[in-house]
């Protein structure tokens, strides 16, 4: 279970949801330091196993993967599941490399067929859904947070157990990598991967001020997160952390508003599973309209201020 040092990441329950769909015998494993609050949170969803030690103060891949692999072996785990994030891609993939490499990333669906676990995952920037079977055990799987719901919290919490520390010599974990710093994104707006509404801007916006005024302004009027196409990140208009797409964030909010975004395949890969998609674009033939539920053909510099004004006037 991924956490940020103070709480579990909001999508982390999806991994438990997937695991619960396949087995009654699941354990929520949390590792790090000073984990009391996170362990309590995890124990609302499943029996929790905790590796709490100062040697795990920062999520460094070689150390954390070593611990995950060792615990997985000690528990005879057949499935190791995590929610697909940069944390899981870094650390859980390395753990999979220690456990034999039977891994599927970004799983969005599954089915048991003749006793075999069929997994569905997107490929080619989401142009294709592939169905695969993993050979060997344990199987390591990351799931998209939008594809699975967390189990409902139990009225009485499950047990919390510490890993048997004699199984580890915490002083002898891999030591080649040192954490130096994390420049946390700060800002009043919600995180793009966690928001109910995402307002996203594309090439139509010519500079950072215009982006902030229109995309930021509409996001604030809606209580939404802001996102961006790759073109604006490449142009230095928006920061990396806002990029939605195959190589950026994968989002699936209740509402995705695409402003001045043409709809390149790699962008669609990051947002096309949103529940409702609305687009404003000057080009009536822009591919984004094929993936939208509602479309307005027009100039974002004219239409967005109208939306903001109407929302702020409370009409």
């Amino acid at each position: 279970m991924e956490h940020d040092g103070t709480a579990l990441r909001s999508g982390s329950g999806a991994a438990l949801g997937f695991a619960r769909a396949l087995s009654e015998d699941i354990t929520a494993f949390v590792l790090g330091v000073n984990l009391e609050a996170m362990a309590d949170e995890a124990a609302k969803l499943a029996p929790a196993l905790v590796a709490d030690h100062p040697a795990l103060s920062a999520p460094v891949a070689d150390r954390w993967a070593h611990v995950i692999a060792k615990v997985a072996r000690a528990q005879n785990a057949e499935l190791i599941v995590a929610t697909s994030t940069t944390w899981a891609k870094d650390i859980v993939s390395r753990a999979a490399g220690l456990l034999g490499g039977a891994m599927a990333s970004d799983v969005i669906g599954h089915e048991m067929v003749d006793g075999e676990l069929h997994l569905r995952r997107p490929m080619f920037a989401g142009a294709v859904n592939a169905t695969i079977v993993l050979e060997g055990s344990p199987k390591i799987i990351t799931v998209r947070p939008s594809a699975y719901d967390a189990p409902t919290a139990a009225a009485t919490p499950f047990t919390i157990e510490a890993v048997a520390t004699d199984a580890f010599d915490f002083g002898k974990l891999p030591n080649a990598t040192q954490f130096e710093s994390l420049d946390r994104k700060t800002g009043a707006r919600p995180d793009v991967t966690e928001a109910r509404i995402v307002v996203s801007g594309g090439r139509a916006f010519k500079n950072s001020e215009d982006f902030e005024q229109h995309v930021g302004g509409l996001a604030d009027a809606l209580g939404a997160a802001t996102g961006s196409s790759r073109a604006l990140v490449d142009a230095g208009i928006t920061p990396n952390s806002l990029q939605v797409g195959q190589t950026g964030k994968i989002v699936a909010p209740e509402l995705y508003l695409a402003l001045g975004i043409s709809g390149a395949v790699q962008h669609l890969a990051g947002m096309k599973n949103s529940r409702v998609i609305a687009a404003i674009n000057q080009d009536s033939d822009a591919p984004i309209f094929e993936f939208a539920d509602y479309g307005l053909v027009g100039d974002v510099y004219e239409e967005v201020p109208r939306l903001i004004a109407e929302l702020n006037s409370g009409q």
């Binding site: 169905t131 079977v133 239409e303």
Partner: peptide
Amino acid sequence: RVRLIGMELINSQRHCEKVETASNLLAKL
């Protein structure tokens, strides 16, 4: 470690309803 069983092409299942004004768009949302 990975056996491919099948593939399907993903096409958009959405039908875009075009609206005329920002106000209409907001009403739909």
